[in-house]
């Protein structure tokens, strides 16, 4: 028995040694952050996302496999603004990795790098549903914020890996250039959507609306995170009819019954938009994400 334990311990230690690689170990909470980190870090970083793009990052659980990833990370990049409040604190406690704990160089909260919309003023209560007093955390859905995020990531990678700094800045410049070029294309494609009133399932598209000049006037959820009631849906039917609202946008993971009901009652068109890289097949990069969103919107949005 004693010998078995000794062997097991030895095995663990050997595996630990093998596992320490040369590339900077980066862990992100979502696939979008991972996509940007890969674009900036290139081969010098090893990036893994804790949640898949198909899931709502707010409702993730601190799974054991995540503990393992965070325990080895040299940089943890998060959405912040309470997006991961349910699972990141217990995860960080279990992972016991000082490098990536809040207050250290390996902890990068990107919500502090972008202008947040929807900050709550006045009294905030849970009677209002899942409101985020610090501001709406879905900011990555504005490509202009993507540039802010990329800059913060490039700066931090340069701090953690000074010899690679020039490379990170070079990749950042290329990333910004691509985004700039693409943003023009996307905005031109979506000109028909400008000024339009749109309904969203959840309060998650205000940044997208801001970037492309349409407005989200109502949500299928009566309050953020609260399931739609029959009364609220019939109010929506009235509103859609009287204001001739023509488009409903929603993430792929929400139930479709409510949207289908609204469609049946009013003929409103429904666009299921990927909210993240990896949310639908073949969306790997941050640019892919908006390519797809714009493609879907231009098909559903225009006549």
């Amino acid at each position: 028995m004693k010998q078995f334990i000794q062997h097991a311990l030895l095995l663990f230690l050997v595996m630990g040694a093998v596992n320490s690689q040369a590339a900077l170990q980066v862990v992100t909470t979502t696939e979008d952050l991972a996509a940007i980190a890969r674009a900036i870090g290139g081969a010098a970083v090893d990036v893994v996302s804790l949640t898949p793009g198909t899931r709502d990052p707010h409702f993730a659980e601190a799974k054991p496999s995540m503990i393992r990833k965070v325990s080895r990370a040299e940089l943890l990049i998060l959405v912040g603004a309470d997006m991961e409040i349910g699972w990141l604190p217990p995860l960080l406690q279990s992972a016991r990795n000082g490098r990536v704990q809040s207050g250290n160089a390996g902890y990068l909260d990107l919500s502090l790098t972008v202008p947040l919309l929807g900050k709550m003023t006045g009294p905030v209560s849970r009677a209002m549903g899942d409101v985020h007093a610090k501001g709406n955390p879905h900011y990555w859905l504005d490509p202009r914020n993507g540039a802010h995020m990329a800059r913060a990531i490039a700066t931090r990678l340069g701090e953690l890996d000074p010899p690679g700094q020039a490379d990170y800045q070079a990749r950042l410049a290329a990333f910004e250039q691509t985004l700039e070029q693409k943003l023009k294309e996307w905005q031109t494609t979506l000109i028909p959507l400008r000024g339009q009133a749109v309904i969203a399932y959840h309060t998650s598209f205000i940044y997208l609306a801001d970037a492309f000049g349409f407005s989200v006037v109502d949500e299928v959820e009566p309050m953020p995170g609260i399931a739609p009631s029959a009364a609220h849906l019939s109010q929506l039917v009235q509103r859609i009819k009287s204001e001739q609202i023509d488009l409903l946008i929603m993430e792929p993971y929400y139930e479709r019954r409510s949207a289908r009901y609204l469609h049946d009652q009013t003929g409103i068109r429904i666009a299921v938009l990927p909210q993240s890289a990896g949310a639908l097949p073949q969306i790997e990069t941050y640019v892919d994400l908006f390519d797809r969103i714009v493609a879907i919107l231009s098909q559903t949005g225009g006549d």
């Binding site: 207050g103 990107l110 202008p115 202009r144 910004e176």
Partner: peptide, 25 residues
């Protein structure tokens, strides 16, 4: 969306001192 842009937000956010420091969040 490059740092050369005229948006004041971009300028403020890109100066390295405004990138969230390793300090308090």
């Amino acid at each position: 969306i490059t740092p050369a842009a005229n948006s004041t937000i971009v300028r403020q956010q890109t100066s390295p001192s405004d990138v969230p420091s390793s300090g308090l969040t």
